[in-house]
């Protein structure tokens, strides 16, 4: 059984690595959760691959407070994301507590 992997993203310039690592981990049978905070919530609106990431990863969420702070309307749910995944920093806590391996990007 492959280990699970949680990725905490705070740098908006790392999206290609988020995708690459998620794909590689999924190919190994891993469960992957990704949480975007602060500047990195721009990825949800500006990265063409974001909807695909939502399909590939087991769980993708973004910090709704950060999203609002970056100037977006919280009712404007990014394509690919479920509305209930516009979430809080508790998602980061879940990554740390419940996933075997941790990566920040």
């Amino acid at each position: 059984m492959s280990k699970s992997l949680g990725i905490f993203v705070t740098n908006p310039d790392q999206f290609k690595h988020v995708m690459g690592i998620t794909k590689a981990a999924k190919a190994k049978g891993s469960s992957v959760k990704v949480f975007f905070s602060w500047d990195a919530t721009h990825n949800a609106k500006k990265e063409a691959g974001f909807p695909e990431l939502c399909k590939i990863a087991d769980d993708v969420s973004i910090c709704v407070d950060s999203y609002k702070n970056m100037g977006y309307d919280i009712d404007d749910v990014p394509e690919g994301l479920e509305a209930n995944k516009m979430a809080t920093q508790a998602q980061h806590g879940i990554i740390i507590e419940d996933y075997d391996c941790y990566l920040s990007l």
């Binding site: 705070t10 905070s37 602060w38 407070d65 950060s66 702070n69 809080t88 920093q89 508790a90 980061h92 806590g93 740390i96």
Partner: peptide, 11 residues
């Protein structure tokens, strides 16, 4: 925001 993130983990 980073301090807010730390607070979120403390909670």
């Amino acid at each position: 925001d980073g301090i807010r993130s730390a607070l979120g983990l403390a909670v």
